[in-house]
């Protein structure tokens, strides 16, 4: 049925006149300008860092240096340990992220479905949301044991409450008239949720994904600070304890890269969705 239908292609964007051509050129130049400045800032930062430490203006013992970071990275790659640390942190983050996002959304669905339950639980959710989750660290370790399960729990705790609140808001912000329309077409509650409320909340869901990417890294690293024997957070703590700033910096840089990559993945999902 559907594939029989004709597709209407949007018109190709092409210059229509001299003015339009100028406009497109300006857009392109703007973009080039912005990107080149971003690159310049990055390299200036790295360059200054290297220069100031090489000339001993600042002490590389405390701030490390780009070349030291690079050498540290190479040696970590050569002895192969770095992959294990990256793998563990990445695993903890992704698992925590997935559990928190799915779990939070499921709870939001439950609370949307049952108004009374929502009203009963509302104050508890508010309190949970304002509680600094790190305070629960010792209790978490007592309850689920130290190590990976504690870290994932911390990560989930940090993300899940906000996910629930945001998704519930998105569900409840659906236009009441649209719900009436569905009812006038005799939709049942499940259909109203599945065909209206849920798709209507996709934009909010994507922004929740973006927030959770950041928050889940916070949760994992915080968890690793608390109790861990491997992972990038562990390397950072360990490095600072033995005054190996090179190790601390290398792990931090890797953390930045990984978080950026994960954020980029979400942006790709968004692009694919809104195409």
């Amino acid at each position: 049925m559907k594939n029989k239908l004709k597709t209407v292609k949007p018109p190709k964007i092409a210059p229509y006149s001299k003015a339009h051509e100028r406009y497109l050129k300006k857009l392109r130049n703007d973009k080039i300008f912005v990107i080149s400045f971003q690159v310049v800032i990055l390299f200036t930062f790295i360059g200054l860092w290297e220069l100031l430490t090489a000339t001993k203006v600042i002490d590389p013992f405390f701030v490390s240096s780009p070349s030291r970071v690079f050498n540290m990275f190479i040696s970590l790659v050569e002895d192969g340990t770095i992959w294990r640390h990256i793998g563990i942190t990445l695993l903890e983050t992704i698992v925590g992220f997935a559990i928190a996002t799915l779990g939070g959304t499921l709870i939001a669905i439950l609370l949307w479905w049952n108004k009374r339950l929502r009203r009963i639980l509302e104050p508890y959710i508010v309190v949970l949301n304002s509680l600094p989750k790190i305070a629960l660290g010792p209790i978490i370790i007592l309850w689920v044991g130290s190590g990976m399960s504690a870290i994932i729990t911390m990560c989930v705790l940090i993300c899940i409450v906000l996910t629930t609140i945001s998704m519930l808001n998105a569900f409840n912000s659906c236009d009441a008239d649209k719900i009436q329309l569905m009812k006038s077409m005799h939709a049942n509650k499940f259909q109203i949720f599945w065909k209206l409320i849920l798709p209507n909340a996709t934009d909010e869901f994507i922004s929740v994904l973006k927030i959770n990417v950041g928050m889940s890294w916070v949760g994992t690293i915080m968890g690793e600070y608390l109790s861990s024997s491997a992972g990038l957070g562990y390397l950072i703590v360990y490095g600072s304890q033995i005054f190996k700033i090179d190790l601390v910096m290398t792990s931090t840089v890797l953390l930045c890269l990984l978080a950026a990559l994960m954020y980029l993945a979400i942006c790709l999902i968004q692009k694919w969705h809104s195409r």
């Binding site: 236009d175 008239d177 649209k178 009436q180 329309l181 006038s184 209206l196 209507n200 996709t202």
Partner: peptide
């Protein structure tokens, strides 16, 4: 059949 003031087409 009920037609509302706004079209309420689902954008997705």
């Amino acid at each position: 059949g009920y037609m509302f003031q706004r079209d309420h087409l689902f954008e997705w």
